[in-house]
Design a protein around this nucleic acid. Sequence first.
DNA 1: AAAAAGATAGAAAAAGTTTTTCATCGTCAC
DNA 2: GTGACGATGAAAAACTTTTTCTATCTTTTT
Lengths: 142, 142
Amino acid sequence: MKEAKEIFEKYIAGKKLKFTNQRNLIVETFLKEEGHISTEELYRKVIPKAPSIGLATVYRTLKLLAECGLAHERNFGDGQTRYEHSYEHIHHDHLICTGCGKIIEFENTDIEKLQNEIARKNKFKAYAHKLELYGFCNDCKK
Amino acid sequence: MKEAKEIFEKYIAGKKLKFTNQRNLIVETFLKEEGHISTEELYRKVIPKAPSIGLATVYRTLKLLAECGLAHERNFGDGQTRYEHSYEHIHHDHLICTGCGKIIEFENTDIEKLQNEIARKNKFKAYAHKLELYGFCNDCKK
DNA sequence: AAAAAGATAGAAAAAGTTTTTCATCGTCAC
DNA sequence: GTGACGATGAAAAACTTTTTCTATCTTTTT
C-alpha cells in the first residue's frame, strides 16, 4: 500500500506535477478500497474528510492513477466507469450476468499459468490481465 | 446469421413485442457488422436505408439485442458503449502492449476449457468471454 | 522579499452519451 | 370502423465526464 503510493508520487514527480493534499487524500482513499469503485462513489467517501473537494478533482486524480497503472478502468454497463486498483492485488476475474447485472468474482491459478505461458511464447512481459465471462446466472437462465 | 435473427424474433414474440421494419433493419445491419460498433455508428449505417429513423430507436433495439444475448456491451474507454454480436462467433483474445499499442491476437483452447469449467461451477451459462493481457511486447521491454 | 511563472483546485459551464417523455402513427382484434 | 396497445421520431431530460475560468498556492527567479 505504501509502495503503491510511492509509485504514484514518482509518476507525479516525473511529470513535474505536484503531490497535493487533495491528491494524497484521494489516492489513499482509493487504495483502501477493495472492490471496484466509481468516481462518484469515491467522491462521496472523500467528502467527509475534505468537504470542499470538487468532483472534477476526483475525476482528474483517478485519471492519473489509471495512467500510471495503479488503477484499471472497468465498465459493467451501468453507465459509470469503475476503477479497481491493480498493484500487488489478487486478480479478480469476473463472471458477468447480462440478465440481471450480477457480478461473480473468481480466481483460477491454472488459467493464470496458461496466461503466463502465452505471454512467454509471444515474448511478452505481462503485468496485468482482464478476464470476463459473459452469460446468464442461475436465476436468469430459462 | 439467419438463426441469429430468428432468436431475436422469438425473443421479441415472447415479450409480446413487435418485429417492425425498423427493428428488422437495425438488427440486420448490426449482424452484418464484424467488429464492435457504437450506437452512433450503427445509426449512421442505418440512416441511408431509412432516413427517418431515430437514434432512440437504435438505442432501444440494441438494448433488446443485448437482453436476448445476441449482442454484448463493451467499453473501451472512449466514452461510447460498443456492441459486438456474440452468436457463433470466434473469440479474439488479446495481448495488448501498453508501450506501443500493438495488439496480438491469440486463442487457447485449454483456457477456454477452464473457463467453461468455472462457469459450470458457478451455475453460470456463459456465451462469450473477453481475455486481455496487458504488458510490454518484445520491442518495448527494457 | 517581491515578482514571475507554472500548476492546482473548486465551481460552473459545457460537452457528450443515453434515456425518457410525448404526441402521433400503425397494426391487430373485434 | 373502432378501440387498444405497442412503436416511432423528435425533442427534452437526465447523467456522466470534461473543460473552462478564476483565484490560489508553490516554486523559481530576480
